[in-house]
Design a binder for these strands. Structure first.
Lengths: 255, 255
DNA sequence: GCATTTCTCG
DNA sequence: CGAGAAATGC
């Protein structure tokens, strides 16, 4: 089973790249973030024509998440129960081949002193409670997406510059640890305990060309699935596309 | 001698089309309007690389005019003497092979009751005085560009709809007549006394596809040049380009 | 830097 | 409708 996550930063712009990527990669599940399109603008026809199923939660301009699969998507759940009246579309979950897949576009937070950081704090608490609940029902579970948190300084191109900055603060890292403490594992670090595996590079300043990024997109898996984990890769090839997303896909394969 | 005028509605966007058009048409002079780029943003390097000379008066966002030629451009004059402190770049004149070429992007005016219509009135008076003065020195003179005036109802796709509207009012037509009364002649009507020869079609409502336009771009010539006039054409082929200007070039050939 | 919206202009 | 500016978000 191949499961991938990709923050596409506008599915309108990246649609051809996503279709081509699906053709080439043939994942069992692709989780997308930052669709930036309204619910009724999702290109479901083009996907179905190519034999893909999809569920999505769209929003105009901002956010938006989707799960795309060759298989059936069961028990679809949208949003966080504790943030029922939050208009931001950041969470979609579904069961594929018995595996619970939770796709998240976590709050960015802007900076530690921003009101958006408080929202990020609340949002991660609500996510943790939701995932804890899901784990009681689904032993095989994947929580994946854009977390907007770099777990350790090894996931940051310049840890001094980013010290206690957004994405890298100890408080944010504690939120990520809370998720792992539910019984989840960072699949990439399980197979690659050291080394740089960035998934995001700022468009500004040709950061990708310079190899300067952050690892903020993750595939977290329950112990049950960890046992079957075969490989995890960051597909930096997508950055060679003409109008690339600022994020690269992370692809995990399970036996 | 082949002399043409083309309102390009952003030279940034239309630059490749203009270069291709120059290659194919090989005019002696091409007069451009609505460059919509700042003085230091004019693509002089690309033009020189292809063997063209140019003089221009650029302005950010609005207006902007240029003269492009294979030949030398002498005695360049920018602006209207009576509107010396007008920041709008609408007039550039130069002498090519002994012919005085005055390129104008005349004021639109918006509507008869707009303050911009008063500006149009003043501006045409200042233009008339300038051209009168130029004619005293240059017997062979071409005044060409986007006049934003349709000379007669035959130059309008729906004269009833446009009756006494902007571009078509009797007052504006009197301003155009004032210019002709200086000793200029409407080259297109000289060779084609009747018939529709539109040069502009509103982007809105697929007006070009419906054949509904106005003739507001003109090539006016002194008697001396009229004697040598061989042909005048509107090059509607440019409208088949991918991102066309809303104006088509008008091309006049002199023997 | 890239994507998006809203605004102004023609 | 198509162009540019300015503002916002990441």
């Amino acid at each position: 089973m191949k499961i991938a996550t990709w923050n596409v930063n506008s599915l309108n712009v990246r649609q051809p790249q996503v279709l081509e990527w699906l053709m080439n990669q043939q994942p069992d599940v692709l989780a997308l973030q930052e669709l930036k399109l309204d619910q009724d603008k999702f290109p479901i026809a083009a996907l179905q024509m190519m034999g893909w199923n999809a569920v999505w939660s769209g929003q105009k301009t901002y956010n938006g998440v989707a799960l795309i699969s060759r298989h059936e998507l069961h028990d679809v759940h949208i949003g966080l129960p504790e943030m029922a009246d939050d208009p931001q579309r950041r969470v979609i979950a579904a069961t594929v081949n018995g595996v619970r897949v939770i796709d998240v576009y976590c709050v960015n937070g802007e900076s530690l002193d921003s009101p958006k950081f408080d929202y990020k704090r609340q949002w991660f608490a609500a996510l943790t409670h939701f995932v804890r609940d899901e784990l009681t029902r689904y032993p095989e579970l994947v929580l994946l997406g854009d977390f907007n948190i770099a777990p350790t300084d090894e996931d940051v191109y310049d840890p001094k510059k980013w010290h206690e900055q957004i994405h890298c603060s100890s408080e944010e890292r504690s939120w990520l640890k809370n998720l792992l403490d539910l019984g989840l594992h960072d699949s990439l670090r399980h197979l690659h305990p050291t080394g740089a595996f960035y998934t995001w590079w700022d468009y500004r300043g040709a950061m990708f060309e310079k190899g300067l990024g952050l690892r903020i997109d993750h595939v977290l898996v329950s112990a049950n699935l960890l046992a079957k984990l075969q490989s995890v890769q960051v597909d930096t090839d997508t950055r060679a596309n003409e109008r690339p997303s600022d994020h690269a896909p992370v692809v995990a394969v399970f036996g």
